[in-house]
Design a protein around this nucleic acid. Structure first.
Lengths: 343, 343
DNA sequence: TAATCATGCTAAAACGTTTTAGCATTTTTG
DNA sequence: CAAAAATGCTAAAACGTTTTAGCATGATTA
């Protein structure tokens, strides 16, 4: 019942050396002048008895785990679980499995996770990096381990990454609000110096400058609960009663923002216009539907997997590996929530 | 730079045998009469040079991968990604990593996935089983590999599982609708003989019988797109104009159902009452908020991880391992969508 | 005082692969 | 026809652990 077949058993049964069997199984038979007759015999028998090589032995020998680590900020966030779903098949098809983890944007936790992954000789990493783990990521790159960052990246490091043109897409979104007649536009973001957040802020600030409008910015610290976020936004709205629209720089800020708006008794889009970064079912189904800056999830995923797999094969060859640096465009999906102010 | 330390290096530097070092590192020093002095010396040195054992060698020797497979129907479904998030830390804290995959409820794909996981000697499995993989799951159990099923299970197999009392919780939900004055209650479900779906149907059927009300059932085949589901529900409503409320037996059926209701121009809860199985942000934020049968995600996750870890330690000891068979209660969260019919 | 036991450690096998170097043959070459 | 080259395969080392069996040495027992 138990599949206790080893390559030695195969070799014995076929009256061959394990070297020969191994060479055949790894497709290195031809280049090692194994006769076609033997090749066929091995392949046939192996299929017959359904021999499956031991991954541990293989890994021990060649140092490869055939595992890719997917380190998201929070795997239960629809943006990240969506990406997780999309990178899965590509990896599997190339013989890789994916281990996931949630960093919670906590540098200490992330460091520890990278450490345990390195212990297990994980072959490659797809990471939404946290502030403060530059050293660790650099360590990976310096050791020739393929890395792709996404959602944000480290400007100082030459890793591959896939990000969105945060500044332009936010700028466009704000332009849209202005075009709809909104003049007092609040910007709700996380208190973070990470590239994606600073990019989004830049887009907002640029738009405000172009139109000579005042900035209203709320920066929410990391690690706040939903309630705390909602409370902060309610406070923000109370202190700035002239605000006529809000831009939320992430999906969960947007959700809490909608609750806050509801709590204040404001109506969308008449009293207050709304645009959120990242799309989600909630925004599509909300009444009114929420205008969003929608990231191209499929494209992001494809780029991530493709570049990782590419690096993985490069690694076997000579020369440096090099992750692609990709910036994709987000799409403004206009819905009812930014339809214009009450007259 | 590279951590090329092996246990042999440690042994050499300390003038000890690798046996001794290994015993100390595995906490088996005392029982093997290694002196305290040597223990301390090893521990101190190992910490100093930050020696990290090679997982492959260890796994090859003891046959353990320290990996748990999480096989969900679809990792991007908020219910499953929520569970994924919640089981993560428990596993990590015990030294396990989690590989995930999405079965898409496709038996062939699931079989292939289990196969590749077995090749990698994954230590344990948490699975939402697909119809048709009984044999494979049985194979795992028979080989003494810890398995926990969830969301549904195989009645014929003695695996551990964590499920919801689908029948009672659905019965209660329907009772609630009746109590609110709804009389023509439609039941939208998947065309599946899996336990969770048949349980939910039983609850509905029982309630209908108790109240002597007619059944209106729509069974949607697996693998339909969102559009197809929406279309099917629109058709269902058109053919049964007297329906005054709908129960959706999963979250994504519910979402498509809401779209269908909107398309038909019906208003909730006046024209039509709504209850959905599984909670999600969409249902909480919808206008009106949707009444849901809410599963205790934390409890499900804790039960899954705890029972898996328990089996994992039992495996080292003598005797049979045995996964817990757990049925948890779901909570009816009443919201506006079932507030009652128009007079 | 010889036999037994406890103490503290280690040699070596085993886990199952991949890969390097090389050994007989046979074939080609000059 | 001898030397060189090609052919077809294999022995053995290596990867880095864990664990079994056992070896000295000194202490205890009878």
């Amino acid at each position: 019942m138990k599949n206790k077949q080893t390559i030695r058993d195969i070799a014995d049964k076929l009256q061959l050396s394990i070297t020969t069997v191994s060479l055949v199984l790894n497709g290195k038979a031809r280049e090692n002048r194994i006769s076609q007759e033997v090749i066929d015999r091995v392949l046939k028998f192996v299929k017959e008895v359904d021999y499956r090589p031991n991954h541990f032995a293989r890994s021990l020998r060649n140092g490869k785990s055939k595992i890719i680590a997917f380190m998201a900020e929070d795997i239960s966030n629809p943006f990240f679980s969506g990406i997780a779903r999309l990178i899965e098949d590509g990896a599997n098809n190339s013989g890789y499995k994916i281990v996931y983890c949630s960093t919670e944007n906590n540098a200490e936790k992330t460091r520890e996770l990278i450490r345990t992954f390195r212990d297990r000789r994980v072959d490659a990493y797809i990471i939404t990096p946290t502030e403060g783990i530059e050293k660790e990521v650099e360590g990976l790159v310096n050791n020739g381990i393929p890395v792709m960052l996404f959602d944000r990246y480290f400007t100082g490091l030459s890793t591959g990454y896939v990000v969105i043109d945060n500044e332009d897409s936010t700028y466009n979104a704000i332009q849209h609000l202005v075009g709809q007649g909104y003049q007092r536009i609040g910007f709700v973001t996380l208190d973070s110096r990470q590239t994606q957040m600073s990019g989004r802020y830049s887009g907002y600030a640029r738009a405000m400058e172009v139109h000579d409008l005042p900035e209203y910015v709320l920066r929410i610290p990391y690690g706040c609960s939903e309630q705390q976020i909602e409370h902060a936004i309610v406070g923000f709205l109370s202190e700035n009663e002239d605000i006529d629209s809000l831009f939320f720089s992430s999906n969960y800020l947007g959700v809490s923002g909608l609750k806050a708006i509801r709590q204040k008794g404001l109506s969308i889009p008449g009293d207050i216009g709304v645009v959120a970064f990242d799309d989600s079912e909630v925004f599509r189904m909300y009444t009114p539907a929420i205008t969003t800056v929608t990231q191209p999830m499929e494209e992001i995923s494809t780029c991530l997997v493709d570049s990782i797999l590419e690096q993985l094969v490069q690694k076997d060859g000579p020369g440096e590996i090099r992750g692609k640096e990709i910036e994709l465009s987000a799409r403004l999906v206009v819905r009812g929530s930014s339809a214009g102010k009450q007259k």
